[in-house]
């Protein structure tokens, strides 16, 4: 059986979710490997959400929000950027590398960018292979 990556996407309500919606209404098709979780803002995305996604079976996590300067709450994405910049390095240091956690800015007008992004991320995760059920971050039943 071929490996189909499961990717959890945490997106903000105002830009990327609207962008993903535009992808759909524009009838662009993209890899069906993504599960979207809508949050008010990238600033709302706690590092715990990422750990929870890996714990529960995600092969990768995608985080996407408004471009700098476009945040609906003025500075949520700036706060998020600083936090992620450190957290991704800590994750990499403990063995979850850059093939597992992705970040992007997708605005409400960028339906095509969202489709391309999901396709590219899916390809990269497919190449990297499954997250590994024996990884310490994974819940073992």
């Amino acid at each position: 059986m071929t490996f189909e990556p499961r990717i959890t996407a945490f997106v903000c309500n105002w830009c990327t979710y609207a962008g993903a919606d535009l992808t759909g209404t524009s009838r662009l098709s993209y890899a069906p490997n993504i599960r979207i979780v809508k949050l008010p803002c990238t600033g709302r995305i706690d590092p715990l959400f990422v750990l929870k996604a890996f714990e529960g079976g995600a092969d990768a996590v995608l985080i996407s929000g408004c471009h700098p300067g476009d945040c609906h709450y003025a500075s949520g994405n700036y706060h998020a950027r600083r936090r992620w910049s450190l957290f991704r390095k800590l994750l990499a240091f403990t063995g979850i590398d850059e093939n597992r956690v992705f970040f992007s800015w997708v605005s409400a007008a960028e339906g095509q960018k969202f489709a391309n992004l999901v396709n590219k991320v899916t390809e990269q995760v497919r190449a990297a292979g499954p997250f590994g059920e024996r990884n310490l971050a994974r819940r073992r039943l």
């Binding site: 300067g69 700036y78 706060h79 950027r81 600083r82 992620w84 910049s85 450190l86 970040f103 800015w105």
Partner: peptide, 16 residues
């Protein structure tokens, strides 16, 4: 506080 403040110049090269 480092986390809790921000700057428009923060590195964003890891964001696609």
């Amino acid at each position: 506080p480092l986390i809790g403040s921000w700057s428009a110049e923060d590195d964003g090269s890891f964001i696609r």
